[in-house]
Design a binder for these strands. Structure first.
Lengths: 205, 205
DNA sequence: CCGCCTACTGTACTGAAGTACAACCCGGAT
DNA sequence: ATCCGGGTTGTACTTCAGTACAGTAGGCGG
């Protein structure tokens, strides 16, 4: 992993960033940059600021070094604008250190860090709502054991018995047992109806 | 680096690919896939073929494994369509082995391999984002015929094929035909995943 | 110690879902 | 006249989901 340079308003580094990149350095937007460095450049965009506006001036000064936007308040429009302005990645400024490492890996290898959802939206010209959460702890879960809850959620997300078995590292047979018990307790016919209940979509039966 | 699976017309591997991934395996499109494998899947798209058409059927069988398109005759339109259909990367089938390794690294870390030029074009062309989500007539419905839409909605509400058949007053066999066509068009595995999409839940991938 | 519950697994079966291959009808476009 | 796409249906097949019946094992309260 190359050198990481973080550009923030005051040149300070956040703990999460240090955690991901112990050797990271900080700089202020106006600071002179070392021409010889080659690593990634991260740019913090404070709340209320448009990332794209900040990108252009920085880009001119860093040359070909990849630029990644760290947004305090990420937005899809903002991300688009920033990528259009030449950024190589756009992610939440509060992202976990593992995520930052991933982003760095991707960008260092010449990739772009673009969320799948964002790309889909671009391509399709149609958008989808943020994932309506799987209602954890909804009414449906009260009669289920902990293990059954796990299975129910996996089923509701579209996983097959075999996939759930791998995920929980037990046999498919046991998953069937759990699913059977869940259907019984909730009084539904099959896994699809179970998924509707877990996802909070009450449809007449 | 995880296992690499190359899907080609004849299941053969090219030298360049072997060079990049000595342990790579080849398979034909119709071959059964080992459920336990988890690495990347590469799909060779021969000249004259539309990548997007080939993506959907493969995607359904590989579940959440990232899919990368290897195009013998790359085209930007084709790339867009493929990425829209759920591919995680699109590159020249004759790319050097170092490039392939980079692509693999990027995708394995959850990135998308999109050329900078391609993204620029995307942003230039579709400058505006589609309006926020929609409850009715979502993106899923655009590629479906009227009859297929009816069936998709019924499926999404938890109806069985037999019930839908009664409801539309046609045979269960025809419902199966429609459901099959819908799954194919939307690139999903089964009716539960279809219901997630229709209900705007979009979890996997 | 003894039920009782939870988790887990096995064999075997039924039925639903989905696929493969094929065919027919009809209306609109070439 | 011909081609094509949508809708419809058929037979036959494979795979998956779910159920029936049965059994092992650990924890916990009476």
């Amino acid at each position: 992993m190359g050198e990481q340079l973080f550009i923030t308003g005051d040149g300070g580094l956040r703990d999460l960033w240090r955690e991901a990149f112990p050797s990271a350095r900080g700089a202020r937007p106006a600071d002179k940059l070392d021409e010889r460095e080659t690593g990634l450049v991260w740019l913090l965009v404070p709340p209320g600021k448009a990332a794209a506006r900040l990108v252009a001036p920085i880009r001119r000064r860093i040359g070909s070094r990849p630029l990644i936007i760290l947004a305090d308040e990420p937005g899809e429009e903002d991300a688009l604008a920033a990528l259009g302005a030449g950024a190589s990645g756009y992610c939440n400024a509060h992202a976990a250190s593992e995520v930052l490492l991933q982003v760095a890996t991707v960008v260092e290898n010449g990739g772009l860090w673009v969320g799948q959802r964002l790309l889909q939206r671009l391509l399709a010209g149609t958008a989808r709502l943020a994932p309506p959460p799987v209602a954890e702890g909804g009414a449906w879960s009260v009669s289920l054991t902990e293990r059954e809850r796990e299975v129910a959620i996996a089923v509701a997300q579209g996983a097959s018995n075999k996939e759930i078995a791998r995920q929980l590292d037990i046999t498919e047979r046991t998953i069937k047992a759990h699913v059977g018990a869940i259907l019984e307790k909730l009084g539904v016919r099959d896994r699809l109806q179970l998924s509707l209940i877990v996802n909070g979509i009450e449809v007449g039966r």
